[in-house]
Computed example of a mutant assay.
Amino acid sequence: MRLIASALVTLTLAGSASLAQAQSPQGQTLKVSYDITLAGLPLGKADLSSSFNGAKYAMEGRAKLTGLAMILTGGKGEANASGTLAGDAPPRSTSFAVISRTSDNQRSVRMGLKSGRVAKVEIDPPLEPKPDRVPVKAADKRDVVDPMSALLMPAVASKSLTDPANCDRTLPVFDGASRMNVVLSYAETKKVEMAGYSGPVLVCNARYVPISGHRSERPATKFMQENKDMSVWLAPVEGPRLLFPLKISVRTMIGMGELQASLWSLDDGKSSAPDRKAETSGETVKAEAVP
């Protein structure tokens, strides 16, 4: 399930340009609320908030299972990430943290990065050693982005935000334990209407390519590696000139998993849809930046 959850998060989703291109108005914030379903059944809700201040960004997210899934597992989680944007280059993460809870266990990951390199990782409790776990090499921790920052996809320089070329990219993701590539390619362009957004979206096909840290003999790993039924719908965000997932679809071993945006608000959050308050817990995991 960790692999499937990671895939859902990281999907949600060349060249150089001046730093000024990535700058956005002071205090601009994008808030997106998602409904989570699995095999067509409601599974839970997630809320993501991404703030942009000049070249800097900060992201916070909370997810919670609902209904029967909540009764059976008590599942919920929260995450945060921060870093900088520079033109059409991938985000430069500086910190990432995530904590997941069920009714009978909890795990947290804290990671600090510098210039695209992982400098520090703390996983509590540590992952159990397994004979089929592919070792993570030092090179696998360079030129990477954390799973949350990977959702921010800067537009290709000189291209419009909805140019199909914006789909064609590879996201080099490291989640603290495993290194993977998420390879995107253009499928089609659609027009959508929802609370807070109406307009075109890019539909990108996605492929999961494990590099290291994964368990090579697990059926779930092999299934995801061969999985050709994954996609992400990207909506434009004008200020920082980037694209952000409106919908993420991943076929799992038990059915199609989807994150579908139900509310989208930019800047002042003007929307007729009610603001969903995420449940807070007594403990909040904090990311650790590397000086």
Rank of each mutant, 00 (worst) to 15 (best):
P200A: 09
G196T: 00
V109D: 09
V134K: 02
P91G: 12
S103H: 09
G87C: 14
T189R: 02
K247V: 01
L171E: 02
F52A: 06
L13K: 04
N166L: 04
M253C: 14
E288P: 06
L68E: 10
I71K: 15
A278Y: 14
A63I: 12
D132S: 13
L171M: 08
N105K: 12
S272Q: 07
M253I: 15
G15H: 04
D132P: 12
E78T: 10
Y197T: 03
K159L: 15
V250T: 08
A220Q: 09
P236C: 03
E128F: 01
S100R: 13
N80C: 11
Y197R: 05
M59L: 12
L243N: 06
V290E: 04
Q260W: 06
L43S: 15
T84W: 05
M1K: 13
A150N: 05
F244N: 03
S262V: 13
L161A: 08
N166D: 10
S262D: 08
K137T: 09
D229Q: 10
A20P: 00
Q26A: 13
A206D: 07
E188F: 00
K277C: 05
E283G: 07
L243W: 02
M224A: 14
A206S: 03
R117T: 07
Y186A: 13
N227E: 00
S249Y: 01
W264Y: 05
L30W: 02
N105S: 14
A81V: 08
V98D: 03
V173C: 10
R169G: 08
D88F: 07
G40A: 07
K45P: 05
P236I: 02
T162V: 12
L263P: 01
L151P: 03
M1I: 12
M70W: 12
V201T: 04
T162E: 07
W264F: 08
E193A: 05
S178R: 11
A165S: 09
L19N: 02
M1S: 15
K228W: 01
S231N: 02
K31S: 08
S93R: 06
I254F: 15
L266H: 02
R241L: 02
L259K: 03
E193H: 01
F223M: 07
K191P: 00
A138F: 04
W233Q: 09
R215E: 10
S24A: 13
D47F: 09
K222N: 13
G75I: 15
E217T: 12
F52Y: 10
L246P: 00
A195F: 00
S272M: 03
L246F: 02
S262K: 09
R169Q: 12
S100K: 10
G213V: 07
G27I: 02
S185K: 14
T221K: 10
T280H: 15
M253P: 15
R101W: 14
A165L: 07
E288A: 13
S93W: 13
L48V: 14
A39Y: 09
R241N: 02
P164F: 00
